[in-house]
Design a protein around this nucleic acid. Structure first.
Lengths: 335, 335
DNA sequence: GGTTATAATGCAAGCGTTTACAGCTTTTCT
DNA sequence: AGAAAAGCTGTAAACGCTTGCATTATAACC
């Protein structure tokens, strides 16, 4: 039914050279006389020849394609990371096959396998969990993997992130300085490495050090989770809360506002991963601003090196973050 | 350096059949004796054989991959569409190569060409503009294309959208009924088909019919554009505005709130394409709720038919939308 | 039981490239 | 000028699969 019709062979015939030579000019191999190169280029342009990347992939065993594994396309955290990845990927002429795994571990295996069957040259993995089955599939195919905005307890793959422990501690300190003594932590999955290895320890250490009560709420993932959680926070007399996801933070904030509370006076809310969202809602949320775009970009750059066979010096890359305080804007929308 | 090592040939040898037979069982061809099929399957599992999709693609001329063209990954409008597309694509076993064209017409050509060189079986195109060069590339390769959440004046490709003209008119009517007489329209690119062919005509028709002044603002694409536009709206004494993008709408709203105005009492803001964002900000925006997920899903389903060579009856599909009024919530956050 | 249809398999030619390797032409050097 | 080196180009064998066609095994029929 479709697909191109002009092949490297057609070009070769028209230009009166061999396929090998055409291939060389297409791939910028320098072993071609300028005159020949020009002649071939002319034919290429005249015939609108475009190399068939599938055939190239088969012959060269490189597809110039990378896999992007992401839990949810509509999660701005990952979307902003992806943008950085995408830009650098383009720069290095890679295409991106995107695979969303939607937290259904059931068929993550299938999705990953299908990705690998496409012979991607590398994978950027973004998700709070990296199942064994997935690691095994990566190992089996010997595919370079980089984690972006993601950490894994195995520390097997390079990962680009921020220092979560430090950031969280700074956030708690901010609230404590604001006089909030009843601090809470709201996370998604307690067992995810990011929480298990960083956020929870940071929190526990903090409350112990300052002799504060400990309140951790987990399995809060979306807006309504946050909204509904507010009642509980109120019962527990929480007046400062660090929330991992800003959509959840918005839910909490709106519930608080709807209940007639003032933010941050009555309840200070800090989001541990700010996206577009955090800067649009009012009153603005205090936020840990992770350099998402840069994290994605660095991760992708790292992957290009791995795909090139270069060895990486430092595998666990931690980028600087910013804690953006927005305490005073509260009254702007309330006045 | 890497990649799998067990090929169809290994399986054939181990199972004492020909490659052809292995290929048949892999592809579920029914012309295989059950006993043989079982034997081959056993070997496949034992050897962890996985077909090389690149080789399959070359041999069969079908890659089971579709291209997704999107302006910006972090734009929730497209992200929500993409989610619908992604789900259906998975259902039909297609992988997705995503290409963001970031409004830089400069290298959209390159990006599209690179996508087509990968021999995608079809493309879903989402963007306000469909340049001639892109159409030519599609035509040259005879690739099925479906537009999602996108319209094009050529009406050459199937498109899945809503009835923008009707939706906009309904939005203007709502504002008029609320007593707003100075209505404005805020769009991105005036020349984009969606605006040129639908939104602007709808607006002009409406203001003429009701003898209202006409105020159109264009080239407003992001949050700060909206925020900065507010001063102008105030100068023009606008009290009702339809904004195509909700991020822009949020900018306008926040500027209005910062200026001490009440929304919607002093300025009614309706977003013509609601995303997550519209439901999180306070006061909630009145919004035209497009069924983005469904639009994506329908578009992808349509594409599977085209890729299958089926003919499509109706090319311009218009799904129902919803106008969600949120007038009364304004005081919730203001009290 | 011999014929025919039918199901199951194998053969081998692609699919459109890349890439050793070899061979031929120039250059360069002495 | 002749030899060695370097630069160009072509030949042909992969790459790992699909698929039309031929062939053989099995089933069905009278």
């Amino acid at each position: 039914m479709h697909k191109q019709d002009v092949t490297i062979y057609d070009v070769a015939r028209e230009a009166k050279v061999s396929m090998a030579t055409v291939s060389r000019v297409v791939n910028g191999n320098s072993n071609v006389r300028e005159e020949t190169r020009q002649r071939v280029m002319d034919v290429i342009n005249r015939l609108h020849y475009q190399p068939n990347a599938v055939a190239q992939g088969l012959a060269s065993k490189r597809t110039t394609t990378v896999g992007l594994v992401v839990p949810d396309l509509t999660n701005l955290y990952f979307a902003e990371l992806s943008k950085g990845i995408d830009d650098i990927a383009h720069l290095y002429k890679y295409n991106i096959i995107i695979t969303s795994i939607e937290n259904q571990l059931i068929n993550e295996s299938q999705a990953i396998q299908s990705l690998l069957n496409k012979q991607v040259d590398g994978v950027i993995y973004m998700s709070n969990e990296l199942p064994d089955s997935t690691v095994e599939a990566f190992e089996r195919t010997n595919t370079p993997v980089v984690l972006a905005g993601t950490v894994d307890s195995r520390q097997q793959y390079p990962s680009v992130a921020i220092d979560y422990k430090k950031a969280d501690t700074e956030a708690f300190n901010t609230m404590l300085n604001d006089g909030k003594q009843r601090l809470a932590l709201v996370v998604g999955n307690e067992e995810a490495s990011i929480n298990h290895d960083y956020r929870l320890p940071a929190y526990e250490q903090f409350v112990v050090a300052h002799q504060l009560p400990s309140h951790v709420y987990h399995q809060r993932r979306d807006y309504s989770d946050g909204y509904n959680l507010y009642a509980q926070l109120q019962r527990d007399q929480i007046n400062g809360v660090l929330v991992t996801r800003d959509l959840v933070a918005c839910g909490i904030m709106n519930a608080a506002l709807d209940a007639g509370q003032k933010v941050p006076e009555d309840l200070e809310i800090i989001t541990a991963s700010a996206t577009q969202l955090a800067s649009v809602v009012r009153p603005s949320l205090t936020a840990v601003k992770q350099p998402l775009y840069d994290m994605g970009a660095v991760a992708m750059r790292l992957l290009t090196k791995l795909m090139n066979g270069e060895k990486i010096e430092e595998k666990q890359i931690r980028l600087p973050y910013e804690l953006m305080k927005k305490a005073t804007t509260a009254n702007k929308s309330a006045e």
